[in-house]
Nucleic acid binder design. Sequence first.
DNA 1: TCGAGATTGTTCGGATGCGAATAATCTCAG
DNA 2: CTGAGATTATTCGCATCCGAACAATCTCGA
Lengths: 165, 165
Amino acid sequence: MAGQHTLAETERQVSERLAHMNLDFQAMAVTSNLFRAASAVRNHLERTVLSASGLSWTAFVVLWVTWIWEPIETRQIADEGGFSKATLTGVLNTLEGRGYLTREKSKDDGRLVLVSLTDSGRKLMDGLFPEFNKQEQKISSVVDEKNQTLFADMLRAVTAFTEAQ
Amino acid sequence: MAGQHTLAETERQVSERLAHMNLDFQAMAVTSNLFRAASAVRNHLERTVLSASGLSWTAFVVLWVTWIWEPIETRQIADEGGFSKATLTGVLNTLEGRGYLTREKSKDDGRLVLVSLTDSGRKLMDGLFPEFNKQEQKISSVVDEKNQTLFADMLRAVTAFTEAQ
DNA sequence: TCGAGATTGTTCGGATGCGAATAATCTCAG
DNA sequence: CTGAGATTATTCGCATCCGAACAATCTCGA
């Protein structure tokens, strides 16, 4: 709920406070709203969908990526999820401890570890993801149907460019 | 950087794997690309701009919000930054310990704490933010100049709607 | 005036989160 | 065949992160 200041008020204060600095305010609005949006959506989904299952955002991402690609190498989970291998190790410990997934050494390459969902983990995602998607749909609906593709395309472009840097 | 799978490959695998579930894939693309973009941009800015000063993303956000609004109440910092009060307390301890800001009890309301930058903190932001904004500009430039406003508007709409839920 | 209820920042416990160091494993030129 | 270099998951230390419980402070109706 953006506290006492609306988004517009904040941006006005910013341009007033930094008027002398010759900055690109357009670019500033793009990135800062990108983070506000991501953070707001994440918090909302955590509260409305994930908290009931005791899942953190990252834990859910790990389960989701595994659900889509299993069996999957851990390095790829970290890659798809956008966090470090070190972080992943901890989250995998948590999720393995709760019985949602299993780790297994690769036969082809002894350095790799393959992750798969357990029946319990698969059942969890089968029940959870439709709920999750309903919220995604609600949120996306604030953008015109015909603009949603453009919206996703712009986000994809930002990702691709930034990761290539 | 997106690992072995391109964004397109990932989305194809997703729709194949979940084809039977009657989901809104358009909405899924919007939110998942929102997080990918935010995560990619954040990681990039941390590496290219923030790491040299030993600042975490959150620490930078705290300094930035304080820079714009000082003196500012802690609850507002947490609100603008999108994290909890508990998190903020820890980050404020870190930044206060490094001499970038100060805490001061409000005279009007004994429950409140007001945060201001020190000269050192202000100097840090004066030097850091133009650098930060240059990167923002680079990243935003992947979207057509004329579409940037629309882009920011859509992100704002997502934020406003989600926080109102 | 006063006290029940609301609000605020901190503390606490536990789960992320990361960079750097490490051990295990693989690759491939010589 | 072999060993130097590359790659991988884990470990380590430390800094976020959060929800819940807490103490201090404020509000406002009776």
